Amino acid sequence: MSGNGNAAATAEENSPKMRVIRVGTRKSQLARIQTDSVVATLKASYPGLQFEIIAMSTTGDKILDTALSKIGEKSLFTKELEHALEKNEVDLVVHSLKDLPTVLPPGFTIGAICKRENPHDAVVFHPKFVGKTLETLPEKSVVGTSSLRRAAQLQRKFPHLEFRSIRGNLNTRLRKLDEQQEFSAIILATAGLQRMGWHNRVGQILHPEECMYAVGQGALGVEVRAKDQDILDLVGVLHDPETLLRCIAERAFLRHLEGGCSVPVAVHTAMKDGQLYLTGGVWSLDGSDSIQETMQATIHVPAQHEDGPEDDPQLVGITARNIPRGPQLAAQNLGISLANLLLSKGAKNILDVARQLNDAH
């Protein structure tokens, strides 16, 4: 009898209710805020589980004197976190989706994509230029951005401005803007500013005609071990179906173009009346040469937790077992079709030249 009692006690200790789920994140304040929001949602869904947040620095956090596009290494903000995932030191990792490459290392998958916040870019102005827009900034004003995508589009749109690289986390960039006289304004992701509670610093939100956004911008991705079915089931509740389908289309477009950090590629997606609209573009580094096109596809946005595919093969690095396969494939095909259209119009040449120029500098 006593033996059975011990077995029952052991089973209770090993039951999922007692389990601590370890969540990996970057150390920056924004990353911690984003991770806290994901953990809060998981806690609400699984009140019996405990969650421990483990923060670590990544290569991208450490190399702050070089433009991201020049470092010449993929997975700048993800490699150390993936290493911890691989060694079973954490069970899942919360990322900004735009930091996750469209091809993940073997053994990993994006197990959830959370509801997207505003994906557009924002302009934050130096205190002396508050009330201005990019259009009304004085001639030769210097605007800071760490992104080739932003610089290429904005140089084309605002030729009277000069664009220079600015690195560091959000706090560091804002301090550089406010305390030094080098920059009249800087460009940042609206979602990051909003998550930090800095709505009052948003001086201008850039519309798609001015600057399309990065693939996955404004959404959070939760990376897990691809074979860890328990954790895949656990994080599945975080999937937002519309965000998922938009981001599958965007990531398929980028992957098929073979774009990345070192080339200016941008997108804009919208879901309306059962249609998914995808606009994508590529630019030369100075913005003088560009190709942009829009395509659409009829896609039914499923309700969360309709029964999805059981075999769960990944699409552009994403596993969404609780979302039907048909809409996911339709979104992926839309991204591939748009990429093929741009490639047929000469996108590869623009991107190759951009890559060579970026590598040469």
Rank of each mutant, 00 (worst) to 15 (best):
Thr279His: 05
Ala330Cys: 15
Lys128His: 11
Leu81Cys: 09
Leu97Ile: 08
Glu179Val: 14
Ala249Lys: 04
Val301Asn: 01
Glu162Lys: 14
Ala40His: 08
Pro127Asp: 06
Ile231His: 02
Gln194His: 07
Met295Pro: 03
Met56Thr: 11
Ile63Trp: 08
Gln217Ile: 03
Gly236Thr: 09
Ile231Phe: 03
Gln34Pro: 01
Ile53Phe: 13
Met56Tyr: 03
Thr41Ile: 12
Gly48His: 06
Lys115Tyr: 06
Asp36Ser: 12
Leu137His: 05
Pro105Met: 09
Phe108Pro: 13
Ala31Leu: 00
Val93Tyr: 03
Gln229Cys: 15
Val93Gly: 08
Ile187Leu: 09
Arg246Asp: 02
Val237Glu: 03
Thr109Arg: 00
Gln314Gly: 01
Pro309Phe: 14
Thr66Gly: 11
Lys43Ser: 10
Phe253Val: 06
Pro208Asn: 02
Gly24His: 02
Ala152Leu: 13
Lys227Ser: 09
Met271His: 15
Leu341Arg: 08
Ala303Tyr: 06
Ala252Val: 15
Arg175Gly: 10
Thr145Arg: 05
Ser96His: 04
Lys345Ala: 13
Asp359Glu: 09
Leu245Glu: 04
Glu182Lys: 07
Arg255Leu: 00
Gly60Leu: 00
Ser28Val: 02
Lys345Cys: 05
Asn349Glu: 09
Ser284Arg: 15
Leu276Trp: 02
Pro127Ser: 10
Gln332Gly: 07
Arg116Glu: 05
Lys132Tyr: 12
Arg116Leu: 04
Asn171Asp: 14
His300Val: 14
Thr109Tyr: 04
Asn333Lys: 14
Lys115Thr: 12
Val353Gly: 07
Glu73Ser: 11
Gly346Lys: 01
Gly236Arg: 13
Glu210Met: 01
Arg22Tyr: 09
Asp286Ala: 05
Leu137Met: 11
Ile71Gln: 15
Arg225Val: 07
Ala152Trp: 10
Arg201Tyr: 15
Asn169Ser: 12
Gly144Glu: 05
Asp312Arg: 12
Val215Arg: 04
His256Lys: 05
Pro47Thr: 12
Arg255Ala: 06
Ala320Glu: 11
His95Tyr: 04
Leu76Gly: 10
Arg246Phe: 06
Gln50Gly: 05
Pro302Asp: 12
Ala320Cys: 06
Leu161Glu: 01
Leu276Ile: 06
Ile53Lys: 11
Arg167Gln: 09
Lys128Pro: 02
Gln194Asn: 06
Asp307Ile: 03
Pro127Val: 07
Leu329Met: 15
Thr269Glu: 01
Leu193Ala: 00
Met56Lys: 13
Phe77Arg: 01
Gln332Cys: 01
Trp198Gln: 06
His239Asn: 06
Glu258Val: 15
Asn88His: 11
Asp91His: 04
Glu310Val: 03
Trp198Gly: 08
Asp99Gln: 01
Ala189Asn: 03
Val38Glu: 04
Ala189Ser: 08
Gly221Ser: 07
Val94Gln: 05
Gln29Asn: 15
Gly72His: 09
Leu30Asp: 00
Leu238Asp: 10
Gln194Glu: 06
Ala331Val: 04
Thr133Gly: 06
Ile291Asn: 09
Val222Phe: 02
Ala40Leu: 08
Glu86Ser: 11
Thr109Ser: 09
Ala249Thr: 14
Arg201Ser: 05
Gly308Arg: 07
Asn169Asp: 06
Thr172Ser: 09
Ala67Phe: 00
Ser45Gly: 07
Thr294Leu: 09
Ala55Val: 12
Gly48Ser: 12
Phe51Val: 14
Glu117Phe: 12
Arg251Glu: 03
Phe158Thr: 14
Gly111Trp: 02
Arg175Gln: 13
Glu139Asp: 13
Leu254Met: 09
Leu42Asn: 01
Thr25Pro: 00
Ala44Thr: 12
Gly274Tyr: 01
His239Val: 04
Ile318Trp: 01
Gly280Thr: 01
Ser284Val: 00
His268Leu: 10
Gly260Ser: 00
Gly111Ala: 06
His300Ser: 07
Ser28Lys: 02
Gly203Arg: 04
Val237Gly: 05
Asp121Glu: 06
Ser165Gln: 12
Asp352Ser: 10
Ala219Val: 13
Leu68Ser: 10
Gly197Ala: 04
Arg325Glu: 11
Leu343Gly: 10
Gln229Met: 12
Val103Cys: 15
Asn322Phe: 14
Lys43His: 09
Asn88Lys: 14
Pro106Phe: 13
Ala55Arg: 11
Glu52Val: 12
Thr319Met: 01
Gln50Phe: 07
Gly107Pro: 03
Ala84Arg: 05
Ile187Gln: 04
Lys62Arg: 07
Leu315Asn: 04
Thr102Gln: 07
Pro241Met: 15
Ile113Thr: 06
Ile54Ala: 07
Leu351Lys: 01
Pro159Gln: 11
Gly24Ala: 09
His300Ile: 10
Asn340Val: 03
Glu89Asp: 12
Gly287Ile: 05
Leu278Asn: 01
Thr190Pro: 04
Thr145Cys: 06
Gly48Val: 11
Gly236Glu: 00
Lys227Met: 06
Leu68Gly: 07
Lys27Met: 11
Asp61Ala: 00
Phe77Gly: 02
Gly107Ile: 01
Thr109His: 10
Gly218Leu: 03
Gln153Ser: 08
Gly326Arg: 11
Cys261Leu: 00
Ile53Cys: 07
Thr58Trp: 00
Val353Met: 14
Arg167Thr: 12
Ala252Tyr: 02
Arg255Pro: 04
Asp36Glu: 11
His120Gly: 09
Lys74Ala: 10
Ala249Tyr: 01
Leu137Asn: 04
His207Tyr: 15
Lys87Gln: 14
Leu30Cys: 10
Ser96Pro: 04
Leu148Met: 14
Glu162Gly: 09
Ala214Gln: 01
Pro47Asp: 09
Ala226Glu: 15
Ala214Trp: 01
Tyr46Ile: 10
Gln332Phe: 04
Val103His: 00
His300Asn: 12
Ile323Ala: 03
Gln296Asp: 04
Ile187Tyr: 02
Leu134Pro: 04
Glu223Phe: 00
Ser141Ala: 13
Ser57Glu: 05
Ile205Gly: 13
Asn171Met: 11
Gly107His: 09
Lys128Val: 06
Ser69Trp: 09
Leu278Trp: 04
Asp240Pro: 04
Phe125Ser: 04
Ser141Val: 09
Ile54Asn: 11
Gly131Ile: 04
Ile291Lys: 13
Ile186Ala: 11
Arg325Asn: 05
Ile186Ser: 06
Arg26Val: 01
His207Ala: 14
Lys128Glu: 15
Asp240Met: 04
Asp61Leu: 10
Gln328Asn: 01
Leu81Gln: 02
Asp289Pro: 15
Leu154Asn: 04
Lys176Gln: 13
Arg175Pro: 05
Lys345Met: 14
Ala112Tyr: 05
Pro264Met: 00
Gly335Trp: 03
Val20Thr: 12
Leu97Asn: 04
Gly346Arg: 11
Thr279Arg: 06
Val38Ala: 09
Ala55Gly: 08
Gly131Gln: 14
Gly111Met: 01
Glu139Val: 08
Ser57Trp: 09
Ile318Arg: 07
Asp240Ala: 08
Ile166Thr: 06
His239Trp: 00
Arg26Trp: 00
Ile323Leu: 14
Val20Pro: 10
Glu306Thr: 03
Thr109Pro: 00
Ser288Phe: 10
Ser96Phe: 01
Ser288Thr: 10
Leu81Arg: 02
Ile318Tyr: 10
Ala84Ile: 05
Leu148Trp: 06
Thr41Leu: 09
Tyr46His: 13
Gln332Glu: 08
Asp121His: 03
Asn200Trp: 12
Leu351His: 12
Ser290His: 00
Leu100Thr: 06
Gln314Thr: 10
Ala354Glu: 11
Glu250Tyr: 01
Arg32Glu: 07
Lys79Val: 09
Lys272Tyr: 02
Glu80Thr: 09
His199Gly: 10
Ala55Pro: 11
Glu117Cys: 13
Asp178Arg: 03
Glu223Trp: 01
Thr66Pro: 13
Ala330Ser: 07
Cys261Glu: 03
Ala31Thr: 00
Glu80Gln: 09
Gly48Pro: 06
Arg251His: 02
Glu250Trp: 03
Lys272Thr: 12
Arg156Gln: 12
Leu276Glu: 03
Gln34Tyr: 03
Pro309Arg: 10
Ala122Asn: 10
Ala84Met: 14
